[in-house]
Design a protein around this nucleic acid. Sequence first.
DNA 1: ACTTGGCACTCGGGAACACAGAGTGCCAGG
DNA 2: CCTGGCACTCTGTGTTCCCGAGTGCCAAGT
Lengths: 337, 337
Amino acid sequence: MLDDRKLAVLRAIVEDYVSTHEPVGSKALADRHNLGVSPATIRNDMAALEDGGYIHQPHTSAGRVPTDKGYRLFVDRLSQVKPLSGAERRAIETFLAGTLDLDEIVTRTVRLLAQLTRHVAVVQYPSLTRSTVRHVEIVPLADTRVMLVLITNTGRVEQRVVDLPEVIADDRVSHLRAVLNAALDGCGLAKVPETVAALPEHLSPEDRPVAATILSVILETLVERHEEKIVFAGAANLAAADFTIGLRDVLEALEEQVVLMRLLGETDDLSELTVRIGSENPYTGLRGTSIVAAGYGSGDKELARLGVLGPTRMDYPVTMGAVRAVARYVGQILAGS
Amino acid sequence: MLDDRKLAVLRAIVEDYVSTHEPVGSKALADRHNLGVSPATIRNDMAALEDGGYIHQPHTSAGRVPTDKGYRLFVDRLSQVKPLSGAERRAIETFLAGTLDLDEIVTRTVRLLAQLTRHVAVVQYPSLTRSTVRHVEIVPLADTRVMLVLITNTGRVEQRVVDLPEVIADDRVSHLRAVLNAALDGCGLAKVPETVAALPEHLSPEDRPVAATILSVILETLVERHEEKIVFAGAANLAAADFTIGLRDVLEALEEQVVLMRLLGETDDLSELTVRIGSENPYTGLRGTSIVAAGYGSGDKELARLGVLGPTRMDYPVTMGAVRAVARYVGQILAGS
DNA sequence: ACTTGGCACTCGGGAACACAGAGTGCCAGG
DNA sequence: CCTGGCACTCTGTGTTCCCGAGTGCCAAGT
C-alpha cells in the first residue's frame, strides 16, 4: 500500500514541515526535494497518505501536515538518529568536566540538554531502589531530634529529620550509628527492608524504641520518596515554540513530579530511546507535545531516565541524537565517580 | 497638588483595573465607587493624575491604566496589607505540618506560596554565611576520593566530592573527621575561614596534604555556592495571566539563579516587605512584572528571602499579605527545628 | 473656586466585503 | 502509471465603514 516513493514523500513532508512550521504543498515538495516526479503525482501520493491517516489537511486549500501517526512512521522507519557534531560533543564534555557531586551532575545535565535541544529537558535522579547504601549518619539536633543522612553509591544524599520517643545520649547515638553502618553498608536498597527487620535483635533492649523509630524512617524514605526526585529546565524554550495552545497545561504537567515520572516512561529496556508522540502519551493537555527519553546508568544497569519534551513538530533525528549522547556521557561520568 | 479625592480616584482606578484588566473610564468609576462626584469631575482629576504621571491612556479614546509610578503610590500610601482569611491560614498550617527536613520545607513553601497567590513563587535557601556548622562528615568513596558532607544548624546539607592527592586509610579519615568536627562544630560559617587557617598546625605532618585539600574544598563550598540556592514554582500561573509580551524573557530570568537572587533584593532590613514594581527592577524583559518579597528567619535574624513574581497589575494588598504570612510561618517552623 | 451637564471630537476594534494566491481533485492524453 | 491542464475551494489579508466608549473643553450653576 505504501510504496517507497510514498514513504519518501512522507519523509519530505515531515522534514519540510519541521523546518518551516507551515503546511507543505505538492509544488513546494517537488521544488525542494528532487523526487523525480511532478507535483500531480505527488498529489496522488499525498491523497493515499491522507487515506492512511499519516498526513492531514488543516483546510481544503492548504498544504499537508503530518499526523501523530505520520511522525511515528517517520521515527520508526524513515529517519536515522543524527550523531552530534564535534562542537556539540565538545560542549558536553566541557560542561560536565571536573569532579562533581550528584547534585551538580544532574543540574548541569538538565541545563545542557535544554540548551542542546532547545526543548524542555527532564532528568530523573538515580533510582534509590537500584542503589546500595554507602553510609548512614546520625546527627543530633536536639534532645529528642536527630537528622538522618543516607548516602548511596550513586552519590545521592537523602536527609530526614527524626523525632525520637525519648532523650538519647551521644554515646548511644554513636553506637547506633556503628551498628547501622555495619549492617547496611553496601546493602542493596532493595534488600534494606529485610536487613532492617532482622536488626533489632542485635541491639540492647534499651536501644530498641529509638532504633525502631529511626529504622521506620529509613524504610519510609525508601518507600515514600521512592524515585520521585526529578528536575527540569528550559521552560523558556516552550514559549519560543509558538505553541498551538495549552502552554499552561504543559507547564502544569512539568511541575507535577508524578506526571513527569510517567512521561519519561516506565520501560525497563536498557538505554533504548523512547519516543512518545502527541496523543501516544497518556495525558491530555500534552497533546501537541512529544517526549524523547532514554535511560542512563553506569555500566550495564539503568539507574534512571532523562529526556526532553517539545512540540510534536520537533526535529526527531537531531533531538534523539542529543538525548542519546547526553545519556551516555552522564553514564560515563557516574561510572567514574 | 494631589488632594484626597484625587488619591481616592487613583485608588479606585488601580482596584478596578486590577480586577477587570481593562482600562477604566470616568463613568465606570462613578458607577462602581461612590465617590460622590460626577464623571466630569473625575475626568478633571484624571487629567491631573495623568499630568503627574500616575496614570496613562493607551489610546486617545480609551480609559486610564495605572503607571508604575501610580502603583507605587498605591502601594505606599493608598493600600493596606490584607491579612489572610482563616481558611488560608489553616491551609498554610496543614501544608507545613509535621517534622520536616529543610528540603521539604522549602519545596512545600514554594508550592504553597504559588498556590496561594496564583503567581510565581521564589524561595531562597537559608543563607550559608549566616548559619553555623553542626556536623562535618567524610565518607570514603574510593582510594583517593571522599565525599564531604556539611550540615548546618538551619538543616542545610551540602555535599561535595573531593579528589585527594594520595591514598588515605580509614583510621586517618576517622581522625580527620574528629579533628574537623571538634574545630568546626558550632562555628559560624562566616568564621570558618580563620578557623580553617589555624587548623593544620594541630595535625600531624603526614595528614596535612590531604587535610589541605579537604579544607580548601570546604572554603570553596562556602564561597562559590555562597547563597545561590534558590527554587521557584508556579510558572503555570504566568501563562494564565494574559501576559502583554515577553513570557519567554520572564521564564529565562526565572531559570537564572543570579537574576533571581537579585530580584528578591539584597536589602538587609529584617522581615520588611519589599515591593518592586515594573521598571523599578533592574532587568529589562521583566518590564510588566512586579516582585513582592520578604525576608524570613528564625528569631530575629534574617536567614534568607522569599517572594512572588507576577504582572504589575496584581492585587498588591492580598499578595503582600500572603507573602508576609508565609514568611512568618516558615520562620516559626525553622525556629522549631 | 469648584462642580456639573452638554457637546463635539477622536480613535480603536469589529463587521462586512472583496480579492489574490496557494493548493487541491480530477480528467484526458502521453 | 505519470503528467499537464483546468476548474474549484478555501484561508488570510487588506480595505472600508461604522459604532461606541471615552475624552477635553466650555459655559452655566452652586
